[in-house]
Design a protein around this nucleic acid. Structure first.
Ligand code: MN
Ligand code: MN
Ligand code: MN
Ligand code: MN
Lengths: 226, 226
DNA sequence: TAATTAATTTAGACAAATCTAAAAATATGT
DNA sequence: ACATATTTTTAGATTTGTCTAAATTAATTA
């Protein structure tokens, strides 16, 4: 009855199921997992059987899946490792936020409780990763931020960029180029009706910046005090 | 004709072949690899075929193996990563030298040139790992130390502990307990004829320390100036 | 040198993680 | 409600890395 070991592959499935659950778009289906992982549906069905046998998910054929407490715990710990490493790579090694995800995908599977306790302490128990995502603590607890997409900002509102909803290197590099990085404050000067784009003024700058709705939907912001 | 990718498993085989080659105990046989890896000889034969196909080793049936330049380069880079991580784990995270090897066995397979360039710089381009083993630079070059086993020390000679020939946690913990750690200087006070054990006096201490031949063979030392 | 022993390779099997193609179940639209 | 479309599962195959048992080659000993 001891802890069965979970393979890297299984960890990846659990992480994806966790993320689909987080999005809360209803039932977590075989096809949604298949799509997100780029793996054939038949292969996913196979793995769901294995994860179910290990009691990491509940699964009834054709009915979709959900994480058990044990599966959720495993997923959260993988995410904790991923985000701790990303923080390390950016803050200590000086890599940029658009190149750490790929490396963290590898590092998140390293097994050693002690390593992560030490790493966490070394990094001074950071609460957020370089993309603004919360880092679970060693018990798996973390605070969910109340960030909203920039696309739902109010005219003349003052906001702070606190996260991204797209972690692709291209998007992150675009943000870097235009100076829309985490912590950047801005005021909404105009909301275009015809294309839902924005004109914002970044604090401490002169020129207004146009932000398409596409971009605005993927930028997470928090209301700033005026 | 591009760089074929090398799996983690293949990297482990190359590393073992490299280490057997380093020991220079003549021909590198299927059985020596099998023994060192704890894998059946038949499995080793199989893998030797694959490594040979990839031109990472030269291999003629029944004749033993040797690394090609490409295979040696791969092995050295894995060792570089292993030792850089060990240095990081001890110097930055504060883990002890007896608990880092296992973790480094996992970390040594992380793929990212940039990560290791940055890590190397962050650690200030260390020349040795926590066990006194040299860390290859990004071109694979490293200086081989002229350390000798303590068992061949001269009576009344003054030496410096600079390495270990056994990396097991038990041995390293024994050394820690008795204070025989890297950098520790000592003078050989007695050499017992009947069991080839030593009595040494560590610099800055009063009591002589008995060191069995077993231990002395596994401790690497360098002559110190008197 | 011939017999015996030891090392190595071959043959056949298995588990994990994947695939494609076909079958079965569920969902959708008129 | 029934036909059609979509989703999911099953069946069978493949790749990688491993195993055991048997066959073969090399080494040792008498
Ligand atoms: Mn990431
Ligand atoms: Mn992140
Ligand atoms: Mn090591
Ligand atoms: Mn080492």
């Amino acid at each position: 009855m001891q802890n069965k070991s979970v393979s890297q592959t299984e960890e990846n499935y659990l992480k994806v199921i966790y993320k689909l659950d987080e999005k809360a778009e209803g039932k977590i289906s075989t096809s949604s997992i298949s799509e997100m992982m780029g793996i054939a549906p038949a292969s996913v069905t196979d793995m769901l059987g294995k994860l179910s046998d290990k009691k990491l998910i509940s699964y009834k054929k054709y009915q979709g899946v959900s994480l058990t407490p044990s599966g959720r715990k495993t997923a959260v710990m993988v995410i904790r490792k991923h985000r701790l490493w990303e923080h390390f790579l950016v803050e200590k090694l000086g890599l940029s936020w658009d190149e750490v995800h790929e490396i963290a995908e590898q590092l998140e599977h390293i097994r050693s409780e002690k390593l992560f306790d030490k790493l966490d302490a070394y990094l001074k128990f950071p609460k957020f990763d370089p993309h603004g995502d919360p880092i679970p603590d060693s018990n798996g607890n973390f605070t969910n931020t109340s960030a909203i997409p920039m696309s739902s900002c109010n005219l003349n509102g003052k906001y702070l960029i606190t996260g991204v909803a797209d972690h692709s290197a291209e998007f992150l590099r675009y943000l870097t180029r235009t100076g829309m990085i985490l912590g950047c404050q801005f005021t909404v000067k105009e909301k275009q009706e015809y294309d839902n784009s924005f004109l914002i003024l970044k604090q401490g700058t002169k020129n207004e910046l146009a932000v398409s709705n596409e971009i605005a939907k993927k930028l997470l912001v928090t209301k700033a005090r005026d």
